[in-house]
Amino acid sequence: MLDTTSRSHADLMDETYRHQRIIYDLTRKYYLFGRDRLIAGLAPKPGSHVLEVACGTGRNLHLAARKYPECAFYGLDISAKMLATASDKLGSRVQLAQADACDFNSSALFHRPRFDRIFISYGISMIPAWKSALRMACRQLSPGGQLHVVDFSDQSGLPRPFGRALHRWLAKFHVSPRLELKQALSACASGIGGISQHQDLYRGYAQYGVISKPY
Rank of each mutant, 00 (worst) to 15 (best):
H49N: 12
Q140W: 03
N60S: 15
N60R: 04
A133Q: 01
F119T: 00
S107L: 09
H49V: 09
H174G: 00
C55H: 03
A137E: 05
A133F: 07
V50M: 05
L32W: 08
T85Y: 08
Y17K: 03
S121N: 09
G75S: 08
A101I: 10
H174I: 07
K172A: 12
S176G: 03
I23A: 14
P159M: 06
T27Q: 12
A165M: 11
A187C: 10
R139P: 02
P177Q: 07
S79T: 01
I211V: 15
H174S: 11
H198C: 07
I22E: 15
L32G: 07
T4M: 11
Q98P: 06
D154I: 08
T16Y: 11
L63M: 10
T27H: 08
S132Y: 02
H9K: 10
K67N: 07
A86R: 00
H9P: 05
R168C: 12
L141N: 06
G194R: 04
Q197V: 08
A99S: 01
V210Q: 06
E70V: 06
A137G: 14
T85W: 02
I118V: 13
L2F: 05
L166T: 13
G91P: 09
D25W: 10
A40W: 07
P161Y: 06
M82R: 01
D14M: 02
A54M: 13
S190V: 10
H174E: 13
A133R: 00
C188H: 05
Q20E: 10
S153D: 15
F152C: 02
T57P: 03
G193M: 10
S176C: 11
K89G: 02
M136F: 04
M13G: 04
D100E: 10
G209I: 09
G193I: 04
H174V: 09
D11Y: 11
G58N: 02
S186M: 08
R112I: 10
R139C: 06
S186Q: 13
Y74F: 15
Y68N: 03
W169C: 08
H174T: 10
T57F: 02
A65Y: 01
R117P: 06
M1T: 14
R203S: 12
K45Y: 06
Q207I: 05
D154M: 11
A171Q: 14
S153G: 09
D14V: 04
M82E: 02
G163T: 13
S196A: 15
E180K: 14
G144W: 00
L181K: 00
A189H: 01
G123P: 01
D154W: 11
S142Q: 10
L38E: 01
